[in-house]
């Protein structure tokens, strides 16, 4: 087993550190997972090569390895987040849109349309490359739409209209704000991928807005009208008497509104006890309990694993 790390890198036991480095570089160029997406054999070999280099590529560790103080598996490399884990996924990412099919005859047109590729220009004129950006957008601006001024990579300032209802991961395309075109071709576009920030009160679920509404003990018991924040301002909500924590009430049409659809706001009730249980409340509860016992845990009976 003693020579296996040298074998992995394809060098002799007497190789110099610089030979090992060179061998490692060569193998890395060939095997790096980001250059071989979908090839698990290359990945396995790359891991072995990297692990070998971590030991014998380091003069100190190599000495200890040669002396038998550490074995070939002695060093575990931390799990690296490879680029391909993101780039090779199904989701949208700002680096796509590079592959063209204009040379594939009739099928090229079909594929271009299917995959939303840009159509090619004349022989010599090339459209400039698209520039890719990400942009974080405040929750309310994303929900209701808004304007945002941003600074582009070249220092230019741009006003961007944020369409109402935009979701994280969606892209805003600014025509002609990318790289300049070549030989009279049009400029590329700026593609701005949106990341919507969280909101302390509102949570988004598709077009619906979810809110947790804290209620007092007496509001929950007696019911009544309570003011609830929505993305367009406060709304009076009728709480039915006897509402428990977890009950969800729907405010129809108070969610995110897009050109075509309107979401709802879902209000989840959460009963909050008073900060202090004073003598009055304690006395009342004790007497009430005596005459009106009830069991909210009926359905849990027998569930425990014995």
């Amino acid at each position: 087993m003693q020579d296996s790390l040298y074998k992995t890198l394809g060098v002799s036991k007497t190789a110099t550190q610089s030979d090992i480095k060179k061998a490692y570089r060569k193998l890395m160029k060939e095997l790096h997972p980001d250059l071989n997406p979908g090839d698990s054999k290359a990945e396995t070999r790359f891991k072995k090569v990297t692990a070998a280099n971590d030991i014998i590529g380091d003069e100190e560790k190599r000495k200890r390895y040669d002396a038998g103080e550490i074995d070939a598996t002695g060093n575990e490399t931390p799990q690296q987040q490879y680029y391909r884990q993101y780039a090779d996924g199904r989701g949208q990412n700002p680096y796509q849109g590079q592959a063209g099919y204009q040379d594939a005859g009739d099928m090229g047109d079909i594929f271009s349309q299917m995959f939303n590729r840009r159509q090619g220009g004349a022989q010599q004129a090339f459209k400039g490359q698209d520039r890719r950006y990400n942009m974080s957008v405040a929750f309310m601006d994303a929900a209701l739409g808004g304007k945002k001024q941003v600074t582009m990579a070249d220092g230019a300032s741009l006003n961007i209209s944020i369409p109402k209802g935009i979701e994280s991961g969606k892209t805003i395309r600014l025509k002609g704000k990318g790289e300049p075109g070549h030989n009279g071709g049009p400029a590329g576009d700026a593609l701005i991928q949106v990341e919507v920030e969280n909101h302390p009160v509102f949570t988004r679920n598709g077009l619906d807005i979810e809110v947790t509404l804290p209620l007092t003990l007496y509001e929950a018991a007696l019911g009544g009208k309570v003011s609830v924040p929505t993305i367009k301002g406060n709304v009076g909500l009728n709480i039915p008497a006897g509402s428990s924590t977890g009950k969800v009430l729907r405010l129809k049409g108070r969610g995110i509104e897009t050109a075509r659809k309107k979401g709802d706001q879902l209000v989840k009730i959460s009963i909050q006890m008073p900060e202090n249980i004073d003598a009055d409340l304690k006395a009342f509860m004790e007497s009430w309990q005596k005459d009106h016992p009830y069991d909210p845990r009926k359905s849990m009976k027998g569930a425990a694993h014995v």
């Binding site: 690296q80 987040q81 993101y86 780039a87 890719r132 950006y133 990400n134 974080s136 600074t151 790289e179």
Partner: peptide, 29 residues
């Protein structure tokens, strides 16, 4: 500036997502 990596533009300066960090790591490699 060369457009090798996408950036998030905020009032507080640039920020980068997971894919951008992975891409930067790849470019460094």
């Amino acid at each position: 500036e060369r457009g090798w990596v996408a950036t998030v533009i905020t009032e507080k300066g640039r920020i980068f997502g997971d894919i951008d960090v992975a891409r930067l790591r790849l470019i460094c490699t």
